[in-house]
Design a protein around this nucleic acid. Structure first.
Lengths: 160, 160
DNA sequence: GTACTTTTACTCGGATACCGTCTGTCCGAGTAATTATGG
DNA sequence: CCATAATTACTCGGACAGACGGTATCCGAGTAAAAGTAC
């Protein structure tokens, strides 16, 4: 089991967008340039964030993306769901039914209860962390000094 | 992200083995027959459980498998690790390094801390549940009556 | 200078290809109990 | 009846094929600002 790399890309794209001045917008091309990953794929990811209501898009010339909420209201969990979907990690294949010699899906999967409980604890952790949490961690961490250059770079690339 | 179906198969195979009388052994063929999944693949899974020290195998004629511990000492987490490996769900691709314009892996992934914390909570839940937990759930549930026939069937198929 | 058209720079979403992983199959080798064989 | 050989019924582990999903690319369509054009 592995969490998609698209999730990481999305989170850091949001962290970048969080440095945008209000009302400004950043083109997808610029974002992928700064994150050094493939432009077309990253944009596909960002579009998922748009659908999830996390990011606002502006079409046409001078278009681009920006956060549609305050970063403290964007939970890591929300990002996860936007990218990976809200289906649970575990889904039964009805093996217990076979074990009990019942018709398929005639009984609930005992294991599912346990797996859902575990997943619930996992989710709750991700609900308590936001993009803002990461931004603060960054500013209080050893790479504090690297933030300024990024903001400067944003000034050049942003529009509106 | 999705947990492999092999995990479910393994857990219920163990639940079946838990019904074996002491010292008795059940051939892999019989197990897959009762779980109605492919024999060769299930045996491959069971061999992973053997490597993990959860199941004991006996080779040769009258060979087969049995639990190598009490079912209350087989945590669901142990089964998970045996099948899926003990690498964590999340692994960074160094996107933060790109964001900060550093050489790859020159900084720790901020997101990783969060993801590991969440995963830790997930793991702890699975460490508190065992195969014995499931066995008890089964006996106290609505399909209690289905257990007897299985034990009878085991009497026919087991060896030693 | 105003109304209209064209260009331009973006997003949007689908079609498609690639590639790694999980599922599942197959086979030869190893192992040990059982059976057969020979004296 | 005993010792040895052959058979049998298993596990073991690797090689391999197929399916599926994540990653990534490409392209035509839509959109709106900007630039160009005509009167």
């Amino acid at each position: 089991m592995h969490i998609k790399s698209g999730f990481e890309q999305s989170v850091y794209a949001l962290l970048l967008l969080d440095m945008l001045p209000e009302k400004a917008v950043l083109p997808g091309e610029a974002i992928s340039e700064h994150l050094s990953n493939s432009p077309s794929y990253l944009q596909k990811l960002i579009r998922k964030l748009v659908h999830a209501g996390i990011v606002t898009s502006v079409t046409g010339v001078k278009g681009g993306f920006k956060l549609s909420k305050k970063s403290k209201d964007i939970r890591i969990y929300d990002v996860y769901v936007a990218i990976e979907g809200n289906q649970s990690m575990y889904s039964s294949n009805g093996v217990l039914s076979s074990l009990l010699r019942l018709d398929k899906d005639d009984c609930e999967c005992l294991l599912e209860d346990i797996m859902l409980e575990a997943e619930s604890n996992w989710i709750n952790t991700l609900k308590q962390k936001t993009i803002s949490t990461l931004a603060k961690d960054l500013q209080s961490g050893p790479f504090d000094s690297k933030v300024k250059p990024i903001e400067k770079w944003i000034q050049e690339k942003m529009v509106l």
